[in-house]
Design a binder for these strands. Structure first.
Lengths: 121, 121
DNA sequence: TATATTTGCACCCATACGGTTGCATTTACA
DNA sequence: TGTAAATGCAACCGTATGGGTGCAAATATA
């Protein structure tokens, strides 16, 4: 079974998961509550992300925490290098925009274990 | 059926197709001969690439020519921007490179019809 | 210790993927 | 006009995806 980074980011839910787990390390139920799919489904997506190296897991007591390894995306960046001359202006503009934000580091904000048990519904 | 650029590049064969069709415009049989899978399989991959905008087709007589639209990859580049601070040096160089180009438009270079019917074997 | 929380395990389901083969259709060309 | 080449169409196959449910096991906590 092929399991590379390109396949990891192929699914929109997984891209969202990656975004979420880049901002903060979360345990399974916490992250599952942010998404409209079942915990089991989240587990499967996470497994794929782990298998392709975009996420790592770490057990703490009975909980299992997940966090992103966004450096792995450099494989995608490397592949895209060959197409750099085709990338558009909009890309440059976005790039400039993001440059203004560059000082803010992705801090893991407040919640840790606290809430995370506010079931929706 | 989800059909975006991320899914387009998820498969290694499709990435290879994209590379091939970026270098030159080719008709179906020509491109199929470069790959170790059947013509039908190539057709299916091309259909996916077309549906997500990474390739365009153009009929000429009884032949159908395909060429890449690598500019579409800027959607991927845009998404990756948010992870720029995690990417390695090489990617930053890409970024610098792009900045120097800001005026140049992505031009489609030389080869057009010429070869493309040189059967191997 | 009893109970609640978190995760894991084992299925189930429909559909998409990646590949194939066989045959039909269209179009050049000798 | 007949034949060969290029493509299209349809069906099939095994496995992966993306989703679900139910229940067991492990571990906190009242």
């Amino acid at each position: 079974m092929r399991r590379d980074v390109f396949q990891g980011i192929a699914d929109p839910t997984r891209r969202a998961l990656l975004g979420r787990l880049t901002k903060e390390k979360l345990n399974l139920t916490s992250v599952a509550e942010s998404f409209d799919i079942s915990r089991q489904s989240v587990t499967k997506h996470l497994r794929i992300l782990i298998e392709c190296g975009l996420v790592t897991e770490q057990k703490e007591g009975r909980e299992k925490y997940f966090k992103a390894q966004p450096e792995k995306l450099s494989e995608v960046a490397a592949w895209m290098e060959q197409y750099r001359m085709f990338l558009s202006k909009s890309y440059d503009r976005l790039d400039d925009y993001l440059k203004t934000l560059q000082t803010k580091k992705p801090k893991n904000h407040e919640q840790r274990k606290s809430q995370s048990r506010n079931k929706r519904k």
